[in-house]
Design a binder for these strands. Sequence first.
DNA 1: GGCAATCCATACTCGTCCGTATGGTTACCA
DNA 2: TGGTAACCATACGGACGAGTATGGATTGCC
Lengths: 192, 192
Amino acid sequence: MNASAKPERTRLSAEDWEDAALKLIADQGVGALAVEALARQLGVTKGSFYWHFRTREALLQAALERWEQYGEREVISQIEAMPDPRARLPELFRRVAHEIAPHRVYAALLKALDHPQVVPVMARVSQRRMEFLTTIYREAGLAPAEALNRARLTYAAYVGFLQLNFTLGLPRISHEDFDAYVEHMIKTLTPG
Amino acid sequence: MNASAKPERTRLSAEDWEDAALKLIADQGVGALAVEALARQLGVTKGSFYWHFRTREALLQAALERWEQYGEREVISQIEAMPDPRARLPELFRRVAHEIAPHRVYAALLKALDHPQVVPVMARVSQRRMEFLTTIYREAGLAPAEALNRARLTYAAYVGFLQLNFTLGLPRISHEDFDAYVEHMIKTLTPG
DNA sequence: GGCAATCCATACTCGTCCGTATGGTTACCA
DNA sequence: TGGTAACCATACGGACGAGTATGGATTGCC
């Protein structure tokens, strides 16, 4: 009936466990990452898990590194390919606003910043993204110091939006109101 | 040597437990709220706890309600007392930016939005604050729809700042750079 | 077909934490 | 001053999840 009843009788690899872990993290958070729960979901038992990984901590580490490596990449390169620098910011905003799925893991990890293993990963990812934002703002005509601060502000708004929206579910907003909000955000944060 | 070695031989009340719970939540998050850990910290045992509360869940509920009731209140009323509406926004921004202590519980609860008990509390608190922000923006001259969207943007920036800063510790920023960031934020988000 | 490496199941141990049961101690009050 | 209610300690039961031990099943390969 549900997705957990897959009759996949193929054997599992470490990558399968990592993907399943990321899926579970996106759905229920890092705290819900338990090996027996994962095993049930994959249709096997703990015996399988402890062949592929030495410990639960090792799985989390591998899953985080996998996410850091294969996440994003596409958006940044596509935006950088746009010829007009001043058109990049609106495009980036609209794209991020409407493709929420890839951000679910990031939002989940945001709620696990007390966990020692996720902090360095999130620090690196956030740092890279903010540097990317800073570059775009500079190319849009802002002075270095201003570009940096605007990037901080923009990224903070992004992070806060993730928390308030599809974690808290607030503000309860309609689809067209949301589009208006995005346009307001573009108008307010884009220089010129 | 440390604060947990208080020789307070006075007996405890339910409010003492709630305060200690809030302190622990601010320090280590909702997940770290365990009754035996709290009891150790208060210099008693579980026997004391289960006299005051029926369950761990009840303590969390009481602590959350206590926080919702006694938190904030001061800032909002003080800002509302200012005569010039256009001066309220910068003052609010600077005040929030420099009084980080009261926001530690809010930041901790932000990371526990998967917990059923904290969601309604955070929804109410966030909703009230955003309505307050919307009012201020209206009084500062923005049209209703614009004021609402600007409030959303501002509050998202606030929430994101909490996460990125004293949870993730990013961006690693100096004191004067931080002041410049706050001023940039005021200039960007304040109408006129 | 047989052998070895890979993959998985079953059945445990162990530690942690919630909640209960019960008896002891301290404060208040007539 | 004696008694009752408020407060706390100790000891236990039970659930849950991580990790281990060990044997069974499956795959690739000669």
